[in-house]
Simulated assay, not measured.
Amino acid sequence: MSTEHKITTQKVNFKVFRFNADEDYLPYYENYDMEVTSEEVVLDILNRIKWDHDGSFSYRRSCRHGICGACAIKVNGRSTLACKESMNDMVELFGNELVIEPLSKKRVIKDMIIDKADFWEKHDAVTPYLVAEIDENPQSENLVSPEDADKLDEADLCIQCGACHYACPAVEVNEDFFGPAAFAAAYRFSADVRDNSTSRLADVNEEKQGVWDCVKCFECAEACPKEINPIGKITKLHQMAFQEGIAKNNVAVRHAVGFKKSIMKNGVLDEGGLVLYSEGPAIVKHLPVAFRMFTKGKIVPPWGITKSENLDEIQKLVKSSSTAKF
């Protein structure tokens, strides 16, 4: 029986983002019609555009093994590592019209190459290394148990490609926000039993720059090519803040506390009560919206909330799963 792999081809139109910050006033798109084989990945297409169509086309690439993160771009708006994604999969997902763009259009230097200075500055701001007193001439290894290693939750597998960072809407609108990749790095070292930092966790809990400004959209989890799930690390940094007693009394923290209290009390979420608990007197600014929601049946007054029939079970579940005091 023959095990020979049959190579197939199909025609694909690539609409490719082009821009040279030194020469162009506005970006534009070039179209390239190409026959794509079943063996090719997106990086092969970038190479062919440069080698066969336009030598000025620019992009980053290095290891070709999905571990350096240099070739991260977007295909039809989806963040991807060019060296990792099969063209067959891209066509199956999006069809035969593919748009190739950089991770961030507003940071483009040339074509697929972007200025990642903000990414590295925010990565550096979270102290992305172990802080510990060490013996310069150790006589034995500093061993970490498998159980303690598991606490890192694969955060150490991040390749700093920037895909999650530039997919984050909070990063786009808040220049102070550290971003999901930086938070993943902060968690990786804060969760390490060898680390003795006293400032990192406080830094990522400051307003505007810290984890409480995350909008929980899960875009970072969708964008990550290594499936590290940065949003999960952000949630764990929230828990660490409560465990260490450094969570501040602000709207975001009160929202987390109020959410748990509401579920414990009713077994269901009291949305109006949650806003009141979170905002306090500032809730008056939400009254026009609250009134419209009330008339549409989207929120109910406290006396109108029907408690869950399984309230006892829900309360036991919340108590058993809580790892920190609020």
Rank of each mutant, 00 (worst) to 15 (best):
F57Y: 04
V108C: 09
D135H: 13
P128W: 00
K116H: 13
D54Y: 03
H53K: 15
A125E: 05
N76A: 00
D111M: 08
C83S: 11
E97S: 07
T127Q: 11
L103N: 07
W120C: 03
H123I: 10
Y129P: 04
W51E: 15
D89R: 13
R60W: 09
E133C: 09
S79T: 08
A70R: 10
C83A: 01
E85P: 06
G95C: 07
L81A: 02
V99T: 15
M112R: 07
C68W: 01
I114C: 00
K116Q: 12
L103M: 11
E85M: 14
L81F: 05
R61H: 03
E133H: 13
R107W: 00
L98R: 15
I67E: 12
K50R: 15
S56K: 14
R78S: 06
P102M: 06
K50W: 04
C63F: 02
S56N: 14
K110C: 00
I67K: 12
C71L: 12
A125N: 07
L93V: 12
N88D: 11
M90T: 14
R60E: 02
V75H: 08
A82G: 01
A72W: 08
V91D: 01
E97M: 13
T80W: 03
V131M: 06
L130Y: 00
E101M: 05
V75I: 13
